[in-house]
Every structure is written in C-alpha cells, then in structure tokens.
Amino acid sequence: MADPQSRLIIDLKAISKHYGAGETRVDALRGVDLEVRSGEVVALLGPSGSGKTTLLNIIGCIIDPTEGRVWLDGEPVYENRWLRDDLRRLRLDKIGFIFQFHNLLPFLDAKDNVALVLQLAGKSAGEARRRAIELLDYLEVGNRKDAMPALLSGGEAQRVAIARALANSPRIILADEPTAALDSKRAGIVMDLLRKLAAEQDACIVAVTHDEKIYDRFDRLFHLRDGRLEDQEGSKA
C-alpha cells in the first residue's frame, strides 16, 4: 500500500460518461470516484463492457467525462475549456501508456521508439537517443537497442514499450492488459518491474487486466460492473 503521505496523483470525483441519447443512451460510467497516490499500483478489473477502458481513456485525457471532475497531478482537467492540443501536451508530459500488444512503431528501431517521445517533448535528437539507451539498459534490453520491433521477442518488445512509457518521467502510467501477451513468468517480471519503477519515479500505475496470476502484484484492485466502481480491496500487505 502507498504511503498515506504520498501525493494524490489521480483524483476522480463523480465521473459519469454517457454515449448516445434517449433509448440508445449507454451509461458507460456512473458516478465513479477514484483516488490513486504516487507509488501506487492499482488494477481495474471487470467483465467486458463494464467501463474499464472508458475509465482508462478519461484518465488518459483521450475522452472527456459527461459529468464529474478530473484532477491529474494536482491540476484540474477538462475545466476552463481545455483544447485538444492542451490534452495532447498533458499526455506527452504526464502520462505514459503501455499497451497489450506493445504498439511499437514498426518502422523505428527500439531506441528510436523511445527517443521519439523525448523528441516530441522537445529534447534534441542526440539527447533523446542517449536517454533512450539509458532507459533500455535500465530495463535490460540495451543489447537490442538497434533491433526493429518485428525482431524483438514479446518480453523484449514489452520492455521497450515500458521504456517508451517512462521516457518523459510521467506521473501516471496507464497500462492496458500489459501482460496479456506474455507467459506467467515474464508477466510476473514485467509487473515487478512496473512496481519498482512506480516507486522510483514517484508515479502511479493504473492497469486494466484480466490476468489473475498477477493480482497479487497490485496494491489495490478496483472492480467495475455496469459502469460503477463496486468495491475495492487491498491486495498487497
């Protein structure tokens, strides 16, 4: 469990999200409250259509909520007419994404996949590459820095994707089924790595997962059902 004195990074209050109107209206989320502090690793669980991805998208500044308030790293989001470009900048600076199938750009090698995010944030090409190689070394895939994504194993590709997510030292890391493409041994390694990084970087991690084998790696598990956050439980002592 995270230190109660740690900073509140994600603060959602009464979040609702509706799609459509009238008879075709779908309530994807209904009055969700969620607080996640720095250093915490939490999981969103629930069946398909329960609203996990919608919640992840709202935290990731990809879609805006119909109702409710979102605070990320102490900053109110979607208030005072946030523009699309402001949200993009927020994603670039404060949020890192890890995907189920790594989603590395196939035309860039491992180090450039990481360096791209740094360059987008304004780093020079040389500086970005140096930092990218450091990150890859840290994640123990430095020897594969020149390999194209198609030539990386599943575990290697996911480590490169984690390096990319961490490149700009984000405060929030959002992971969508981060271990779905990995065997149980590698899934455990990746989750331990994410926990370590969250602690070191003072960031929080929110992961959507169905992988029961890694539930014990989370600080808290949140269950979503029909758009409601039904319960929450501490997993790790």
Partner: peptide, 13 residues
C-alpha cells in the same frame, strides 16, 4: 491508422 493512433496517444502533434 493504428500507428497514427499510437502517435496521437503518446502525444505527437
């Protein structure tokens, strides 16, 4: 399109 979506998600303008 999938790569473009990824680029947008990681913050490409």
């Amino acid at each position: 399109l999938k790569q473009i979506a990824t680029l947008k998600l990681i913050g490409a303008p």
